[in-house]
């Protein structure tokens, strides 16, 4: 094909340009779907409960990812500050993942359990009251806004379509029970989503106000589970290097 015929034919030029630039993407992205070790085999990672999932939606809605990453990189100083580096397996049920690329605030991949619920609530309402040097804005409406969970089932169905193992029937429920254990499988049952959400919010009372289920309940439930699913004491230091 002559150079001139490509340059003088806009349609052909567009097609060939697209073909050339997609090579880079294809070579880098496609293999990740069939290389064996992309997602590590690890115990404990499960999909979010309905309440945590709503919290995650709020995390996305409020744009937390614009200042907080969720990706501890495999460097010594990051390990010392945040804990074990993030695994691909830990965000396998995140759609979309919240790795982020900007750390105006600290990384949140392992923030779960690091601070008390009480601290999280006050910090979200007014960060400066606890960390005077903080530049994070307050999110006081989370505590006063009733959590809308009327569409929780649809949200879970949407996630199920992209591969998150929420169950809709007895067969899938039993598969989950075998994979994650009975207790978790119940939380992943779409038919019981609303009831599970209410029960978790009432039982754990994340925001300290039992009178109603606020957005704060969901947000804190999500923050408190981040990075806590895998028990890294079960694995030796170099174990996850075998997957690379």
């Amino acid at each position: 094909m002559k150079h001139e015929s490509v340059e003088t034919n806009a349609g052909l030029l567009i097609i060939l340009t697209l073909a050339v630039i997609s090579i880079g993407g294809l070579v880098e992205i496609v293999p990740l779907f069939y290389i064996d070790d992309t997602i590590e085999e690890v115990e404990g990672v499960r999909p979010y409960t309905p309440l945590e999932q709503r919290g995650r939606d709020l995390y996305v809605r409020e744009g937390c990812y614009t200042c907080h990453s969720q990706m501890v990189r495999p460097f010594r100083d990051e390990m010392l500050r945040y804990g074990h580096y993030s695994l691909a397996a830990e965000s396998q049920y995140d759609h979309p993942f919240q790795w982020g690329s900007k750390r105006t605030g600290p990384d949140l991949a392992r923030v779960g359990g690091k601070y008390s619920n009480e601290w999280q609530v006050q910090h979200l309402i007014n960060p400066k009251s606890l960390v005077p040097e903080s530049i994070m804005p307050g999110y006081p409406w989370l505590a006063t806004t009733r959590l809308d969970f009327s569409d929780i089932e649809q949200r879970m169905i949407a996630l199920r379509r992209v591969g998150v193992p929420y169950s809709v029937n007895q067969e899938e429920f039993e598969a989950n029970a075998e994979r994650f254990g009975e207790e978790v499988a119940v939380m992943l049952d779409i038919n019981r989503a609303e009831e599970n959400l209410v029960a978790q919010a009432q039982q754990e009372n994340f925001d300290g106000d039992p009178s109603f289920i606020s957005e704060m309940d969901a947000m804190v439930a999500y923050l408190q589970v981040l990075g806590t699913m895998v028990d890294f004491t079960d694995y030796s230091e170099g174990h996850f290097a075998d997957f690379r």
Binding site: P74, R76, Y85, G238, A241, R244
Partner: peptide
């Protein structure tokens, strides 16, 4: 253990 170069092993060696 000797492995091919990767950042996770690099970290393990760096920590040790």
């Amino acid at each position: 253990v000797t492995t091919h170069w990767n950042t996770r092993s690099l970290l393990a060696r760096d920590m040790q």
